[in-house]
């Protein structure tokens, strides 16, 4: 059975002072995630990752489309007892201690009183918060709140876990621990759906990734396949406003951005490519073997909407705000 079936879920917000203009946060999204899969939802800021997760959690309502979780409709409250959710930059009742919060959430999730406290302590230990379990959450740092967030997401032993940017706000050690935790969840056979804009995390953890940009799913692929695809390539970056013809004939995939060119060529063509640059008297910035092919894939998937599009989108939003404020 599919763990998550997203059937053309779509969300637009009404924005502006009069709430007349539509802003498409998520274009019709169709995506299926199998049980036991670790799925990474990748995309830059503002891509629509959080919107997707909020739709699936029933926190916002779709403009069109539906989704099914563990074979049930979104509004079926049954579903929620088998689902865990870590929101982006989570915030909790700060009058409670971490222990009290988890106990409260355990109650709300319908965990039986027997064994609940033991489970709470176990979760606190698992995210490394045993020592501060009695402290009020208002005294917690951002990283500690993130840990509480992880603990509450897996507290009731859900089958399916949604994590929105689980590594953000954590120090390198913390990020490592979150990685290990996701790895453990995978070993326990859980389905994990997490969003991130950090490619290395996705590459290390995911079975499959989906790439979303400007509210549109640009591609879905198995990490294993993607990794084999572009192995043995080097990335050459140099100053130039155009791609030298010599490079193209070497089979380079090149992209101009500003006064720089970013070209990827097969490893065996590396010397030939450098020879072209020397001939054309172009200044080399860097030459690196392509280690993360996921990155290649990602960049390639973001391509169709040219560079600078993000900035333009921001521009129009600003204009809208200004227009609104002026009325």
């Amino acid at each position: 059975m599919a763990a998550i079936e997203i059937l053309d879920l779509e969300k637009s917000y009404l924005v502006g002072f009069w709430r007349k203009r539509q802003k498409l946060a998520l274009r019709p999204l169709r995506l299926t995630i199998e049980e036991g899969e670790v799925f990474g939802f990748l995309g830059p800021n503002g891509a629509g990752k959080t919107t997707t997760l909020k739709l699936l959690m029933g926190l916002v309502f779709p403009t069109a489309g539906t989704a099914r979780i563990l074979g049930k409709n979104l509004d079926d409250p049954e579903v929620k007892s088998q689902v865990g959710f870590l929101p982006e930059q989570p915030y909790f009742y700060d009058h409670l201690s971490a222990r009290e919060l988890l106990n409260y959430y355990g109650q709300l999730s319908g965990m039986p009183a027997k064994g609940r406290s033991a489970r709470v302590e176990q979760m606190l230990a698992r995210v490394g918060l045993s020592d501060s379990a009695g402290l009020q959450l208002r005294k917690f740092s951002k990283g500690m709140l993130q840990r509480v967030g992880l603990a509450q997401a897996i507290l009731h032993d859900p089958k399916l876990v949604f994590l929105d940017e689980p590594m953000s706000g954590l120090d390198p050690m913390g990020r490592r621990e979150v990685r290990d935790l996701i790895q453990q969840l995978r070993n326990e056979g859980k389905t994990v759906f997490f969003s991130t804009h950090i490619l290395s995390d996705a590459e290390a953890l995911c079975d499959r990734v989906g790439i979303i940009h400007q509210g549109e799913l640009r591609g879905v692929g198995a990490v294993a396949d993607l990794t084999s695809e572009t192995r043995g390539k080097v990335e050459i970056i140099f100053y130039s406003q155009t791609v030298p013809v010599g490079l193209t004939s070497l089979g380079a995939e090149a992209r101009v951005s500003g006064d720089m060119v970013n070209a990827v060529v097969p490893e065996e063509q590396q010397d030939a490519a450098l020879e072209v640059l020397r001939r054309e008297r172009l200044r080399l910035i860097s030459l690196t073997p392509v280690r993360s092919s996921l990155e290649e894939y990602y960049i390639q998937k973001l391509q169709p909407a040219e560079a600078g599009d993000d900035a333009r989108a921001d521009d129009s939003r600003d204009k809208e705000n200004r227009k609104g404020a002026g009325v």
Binding site: M57, G58, L59, E78, K80, F85, P90, Y105, S109, G110
Partner: peptide, 9 residues
């Protein structure tokens, strides 16, 4: 604070 409450049953 509602997010983690309403994502429960």
């Amino acid at each position: 604070t509602l997010y983690t409450v309403l994502s429960r049953p």
